[in-house]
Nucleic acid binder design. Structure first.
Lengths: 229, 229
DNA sequence: CAATTTAAGTGTTTAAATCACATTTAACAA
DNA sequence: TTGTTAAATGTGATTTAAACACTTAAATTG
């Protein structure tokens, strides 16, 4: 019988975090210089190894916190990568997690010795191992998520203009959207509060500021709505 | 430094296969009686442990083949489950895979000592560990897949009626569909060949038989189309 | 203070998809 | 030949999605 605990192989299980950032203009990704062999000094995702006493979710958060200082980030599991030779150092599998955060609010991502750094997603250096594949897959997942579940709460300033919200979606989807249709769809969702205030920095006329209506939003989520952008 | 290979914990990594079956009427699931402790004798998913020398995909196929005889099934990775106490026997993570096959063509799923058995999805017994959760998650994924990518090639007889195809989707989605609209949508996909033959078993008039047009289908896939049912 | 400039704000039209009903048709049986 | 059964097809109403361009408010400039 092959399915007994005692005879089964044990393996190293790594975690790699794909942290996307949005800074009001473009999509970024957080990378770190690897500080151990093999591939020491090359750019990689933020990663580490699972401990016996923690779940993958916990490990992902611990590793992210440790290497970047980022705390209390909602990480979502993406996929477990398992090519036998994916890591030339030793037989290692890796479960990838991803998140999207406001990179302006998290400019300080270096933590002690570890120098994590934000890169524009389109100008990021090539990565070690299969990390490039991981990022590819994460982008596809992020795009699907973006048009399926509302995002944005943590990504925009508390008060924001419609154009800012639109830019967020354009950055994620990597395509231009029609202003009027975008506004109509967003308004139809009925989760924004239009303020009396205007943002005067962008134009003479000034553009109205909006806030997310957390209550309505939570209620809609509870009712189990998925939205289509 | 925590991220070195030598100091990292190694863990057991299991695989569990959620095999959905369709038999022209309803959705089924393939379960097996566990033959080792803990929980020996209880119903569980088809599972086993990863070997150091194989990928997860390979392991899932090997385990499935070994315990059920099912060979050459396209398995898709679902999620890696990692609660610390999910398996009381020993600290074990499990990566779940799922597939949907024709259960009529695979009635013989017992393999030697292992007696796998098909259950109607709505009448399945409760499962060990977190296998119930796995099944939940797999069903949701399957439904999303079903309306996104054409399925059915392997699930229906070579020649089938529109109603049979509709029943397949109704079983997966667990809802009734409108006949007229269903036919229109399917025809719009342009991947079926209408035969001159009729199936006379279901009615006096008889209903036309169809075949998948493998060529057109493959071509559409290549063009990267996703379809909406 | 009139004219200009800038981005913000706003609706309508058209096409496509979806839905809900209703009728006709082919084959067989009585 | 007539009745029965499920299959096949048609149509109109409704909803949803996509394309598209002008007006407005306010600061700036001459």
């Amino acid at each position: 019988m092959l399915s007994t605990y005692s005879t089964a192989d044990k393996v190293l299980l790594a975690l790699d975090c794909i942290i996307f950032g949005f800074d009001q203009h473009e999509l970024k990704i957080l990378l770190i210089k690897r500080d151990f062999e093999p591939e020491k000094g090359k750019w990689s995702l933020i990663g580490g190894f699972l401990k016996r006493t923690e779940t993958l979710d916990e490990a992902a958060n611990r590793i992210l916190q440790h290497l970047s200082g980022l705390d209390d980030i909602y990480l979502e599991q993406l996929y477990t990568f398992s090519e036998v030779d994916r890591d030339p150092g030793e037989r290692t599998l890796s479960t990838a997690y991803y998140a999207l955060i406001n990179s302006e609010n998290h400019k300080q991502v270096a933590n002690g010795a570890y120098s994590a750094q934000w890169f524009n997603i389109k100008e990021a250096p090539s990565l070690i191992f299969d990390h490039g594949q991981m990022v590819e897959k994460a982008i596809l997942r992020l795009r699907r998520r973006a048009v399926t579940k509302p995002i944005g709460f943590e990504l925009l300033p508390e008060k924001f203009t419609m154009l800012q919200l639109q830019k967020l979606y354009e950055a994620i989807l990597d395509e231009k959207l029609d202003k009027r249709n975008f506004i109509n769809k967003v308004n139809a969702l009925d989760i924004l509060i239009k303020l009396d205030e205007k943002d005067m920095t962008s134009s003479r006329k000034g553009s109205y500021l909006y806030q997310f209506d957390k209550q309505k939003y939570d209620q809609k989520i509870e009712e189990g709505f998925t939205f289509k952008l």
